[in-house]
């Protein structure tokens, strides 16, 4: 079995910001940050599942696994999570 742990973010612990509201949509979800007033569409339900799993997961890799995302697709999802991190939608937290 091959493990793609190339991106350090996969081993980090993150969580959805307390300033963000996620509204379910047919295409995935709409995320609104009340602090910086940024609006972001999450265009895949699996990404929404992963974001929701972040807070209860020890690592990002754990959250992606729980969301049922194949390892081959992790790089694309990590890229999306980094985009969410850039706009403070998700925040790094201390490992539990």
């Amino acid at each position: 079995m091959t493990t793609l742990m190339a991106d350090p973010m996969l081993a980090e612990a993150w969580t959805l910001s307390g300033s963000v509201a996620l509204r379910p949509e047919p295409f995935g979800a709409l995320a609104y940050h009340f602090g910086n007033r940024k609006l972001t569409f999450l265009k895949k339900q699996q990404l929404v599942d992963a974001v929701n799993a972040l807070g209860d997961s020890k690592t990002v890799a754990d959250a992606l696994t729980r969301a049922g995302i194949p390892e081959a697709q992790w790089p694309a999802y990590v890229k999306a999570l980094r985009g969410l991190a850039t706009s403070d939608m998700i925040l790094e937290r201390k490992p539990s």
């Binding site: 007033r37 940024k38 609006l39 972001t40 569409f41 999450l42 265009k43 895949k44 990404l47 694309a76 999802y77 890229k79 999306a80 985009g83 969410l84 706009s87």
Partner: peptide, 10 residues
């Protein structure tokens, strides 16, 4: 997988 939208212009 994500699309950022600017709402300030509204």
């Amino acid at each position: 997988l994500i699309e950022e939208v600017s709402i300030d212009g509204m």
